[in-house]
Simulated scan of single mutants.
Amino acid sequence: MHTDTMTFGPATYEELAEQLDGLLTGETDPIANLANTAALIYHGLPDLNWAGFYLMRREVLVLGPFQGKPACVRIEIGKGVCGTAVARAASVLVPDVHAFPGHIACDAASRSELVVPLVRDGAVLGVLDLDSPIPSRFDARDEAGCEALVAVLLRHLGDFAV
């Protein structure tokens, strides 16, 4: 389990967004930007055991840059929390993954999950996936904060497309 000793207060997501913007400014490679975003989130938020991306490839999500244990490589649209977020083109917050129908358990230690789609011009490019070993780890503030981080990332992905 990843736990940081940093203070987790109301400004955390604003601070992370500023750090992310600075980190990605000037870099045009989308994989490098996805990798640095995953690392910043993983090390910047407490109680995560996985933070990373799945990217759309020929109508299926494929594992992208991440931090944490090895993960499932392919997820079908509509399957699991990630695939559901793609199908809905909307964030999905799951307080208890064991209660989510069709949950895909890549890491048995995960208890809660937040997935935010990367949507540009109506197309889902992929998803940001966060897992925690803590039940109900994520709330509406986390959802809004991660959506803001994804918005920063999307500004730095250039012509990245599915």
Rank of each mutant, 00 (worst) to 15 (best):
P101A: 01
L154M: 04
A123C: 11
V73W: 07
K79Q: 13
G102Q: 06
F160D: 04
G68Y: 01
V62K: 03
P101D: 01
A144Q: 12
I41T: 07
P135F: 08
A144G: 08
A105M: 13
A17H: 05
F66W: 08
T25N: 11
E15L: 14
A161L: 14
L16K: 03
G44M: 11
Y54P: 06
S132V: 03
I104Y: 05
A99I: 10
I134R: 12
G9I: 14
L118W: 00
P46A: 08
I75V: 09
T5V: 14
F53V: 05
A108L: 13
W50K: 01
R120C: 09
G126W: 04
L61T: 03
P70W: 11
G64T: 02
M1N: 15
T7N: 13
S91T: 00
G52H: 07
V62L: 07
A140C: 13
N36W: 14
A105V: 14
V94Y: 02
C72R: 08
D121P: 08
V97F: 02
G126I: 05
E76Y: 02
P30V: 09
R57Q: 13
V73F: 10
T37E: 02
F53R: 05
H2T: 13
A123Y: 10
A123N: 10
T7W: 12
A123V: 11
G52N: 09
V92T: 07
G68F: 04
A35F: 12
L61D: 00
H43P: 11
S132Q: 06
A51V: 00
D96C: 09
A123F: 10
